[in-house]
Design a protein around this nucleic acid. Structure first.
Lengths: 133, 133
DNA sequence: ATAATTGCAAATTTTTTGCAGGTTC
DNA sequence: GAACCTGCAAAAAATTTGCAATTAT
């Protein structure tokens, strides 16, 4: 329930914020432009400035996060259970992937003294649809 | 030799391009602003527009690539042997890491019909210096 | 010689900000 | 009612573009 999450983070549960979060959720992974167009249909008065301000706040509070694919495209997703990503080089589709990164954690050699507490894996390839085009 | 790499990709080996590449190489991972300031000292006439145009061309030709860390910072690096990255959450330092992603490749379950041909791993943690601050 | 590239300036796009009025708790 | 948020408009920052002059091959 986003209402709760927002309050827990000291943010007021405004219509705009709830709309932003539920749209991001709906898309799964979405770029800011698409997000703006989409929310604008629901809330024609939503200002782009408000969207940017909220995206930044929600990032700071770790309610959403960025996903970067392929040299420069930035998507947003809500933060949920830990997962990784698969993206199709043809169509750009992004999908959440469940995988165990522990083998990497335990086998990697780091500079002495450093420690790792999070691993993000990005898989690039071709999706079903594009493979069979 | 960048002279050769550029020509192989149908690009002329201008002073500007060679300077851009050797500066990126020097830094390892660098943001466009730092890169501009740094090259500008060597070539005071280098136009920012030229830098952007070249960054884009070099990306298209796969001579350089972007590295994204921590919600929104973009760095550039030259493309060399396959590697992964470690970044320190405290100081933002980025380091190339050698690791074997094959265990992931062979254990991950993808949607039927999709295939993976590249895996990028990003490790987040704390570096030596910051750990012992 | 010629085709590509640069610098410069202007245009465009993206993101941030100030503030008065409105909303949430 | 107080603190927080929003919309709007303006400002700032980042990126792209057109073109005449220059440079690489």
């Amino acid at each position: 329930m986003y209402q709760t999450i927002l309050k827990e983070n000291g943010l007021k549960a405004t219509h705009q914020r709830l709309a932003i979060l539920s749209e991001i959720e709906k898309y799964g992974h979405v770029q800011i432009e698409t997000l703006y167009e989409s929310i604008h249909t629901l809330y024609p008065t939503l200002a782009l400035g408000t969207l940017y301000r909220n995206i930044n706040e929600l990032k700071e509070k770790n309610i959403i996060q960025e996903v970067h694919v392929n040299n420069s495209k930035v998507y947003y997703e809500t933060i949920k259970e830990k997962h990784h990503h698969f993206t199709c080089k043809e169509c750009g589709m992004i999908e959440d992937i469940q995988l165990d990164a522990e083998p990497i954690h335990s086998s990697v050699t780091l500079p002495k003294g450093s420690s790792v507490d999070r691993i993000d894996v990005m898989l690039y390839g071709t999706c079903d649809k594009c493979a069979s085009h």
